[in-house]
Amino acid sequence: MIDYRARFRSNLAIAACGLAAFAVVPFVANSGLMFLAGLVAINIVFGMSWNLLFSGAGLLSFGHAMFFGGGAYAMALVSLHWPGLPFLLGLAIGAGAGALIALVFGVIALRRASGVYFAVLTLVFSELIHLVITKTTFLGRNDGLVGIPRPTIETGLFTLDLTSATAYYYFIVVAMACAAFALWCFQNSPAGRLIQAIRQDNLRTAFLGTSIFGWQLTAFVLSGALAAFCGAVMVPFTQIASPEIAYWTVSTQPILFTLLGGAGNFWGPAVGAILFGAIDYGTRAMHGLSEITVGTLLLLVVLLIPGGLLGFLQHRRQKKRRKPTEPAPKRTEAQP
């Protein structure tokens, strides 16, 4: 029996440490690094939204850019054309746009395709959405929508001014923490476990009278909404929604984060996104080497530690524990 309360506590502790680390960034780092940290925070949840599908429901999406881009463009449109609308409602519309795309696509595609076919279908549709964006004047075509304002939130009691990059950075950290928490709760709810059961044994779960399609669709819509939420939160930060954020290479990002960090772990995408941000930062002044560096690193991770970084660490710890010559487990645990 797994001790869920202990698990909850330890996850909470990890989250608290992570939040603390993000919270001190503006004090210790310059504005470029803070900006990068904000993007990384968004990427963490973006990666988690993908992993909800992959590790949760066993669906391989190669088109998460369509949700991310959908949410971003919805938010951009709302803030440019209806500036009077409350900001949080704008975010909800962004997330809703992603959910809607996921629902329409999921209803059509989930019944028909699985595995690599499903992955390629998502890739094709996401490319189509990217093309539609670049050809629609309303969406700014290739130049994108620029000059998106940052909001001030009126709560009635007080006014939250998020117009500065630093204030908005904190908003991102809080919003992403809430999203991650909600995701964790969902994955550990009966519904979340049921979806995982479907992944592990399709047939048996069906025998128990569960609608596999229904639950897969639920996971798909949730994942789409979450990815779109990330896109919607990002737009006021970068103040631009350009078609690049709906391009297929963006779809590879959450996959890279998850596999790098470890798909088997809730925090895998977080570790991967942070690592990726660090690599991005490290290669920023290199001439023409960043492609080959990223490629080699990824290949090494997939080939040598397919469980990702966290999977690798866990594996090593378990191996250590099993060794009979090792003294009491307490000492092993104390080692960082």
Partner: peptide
């Protein structure tokens, strides 16, 4: 013996390496 996602990503990494190598 790995899942589709891993082989897709491994070959994507190879594509990046090809592009980098050609540039070099």
């Amino acid at each position: 013996d790995v899942e589709d996602a891993y082989s897709l990503i491994a070959t994507y990494a190879l594509l990046l390496i090809c592009g980098g190598a050609v540039t070099l």
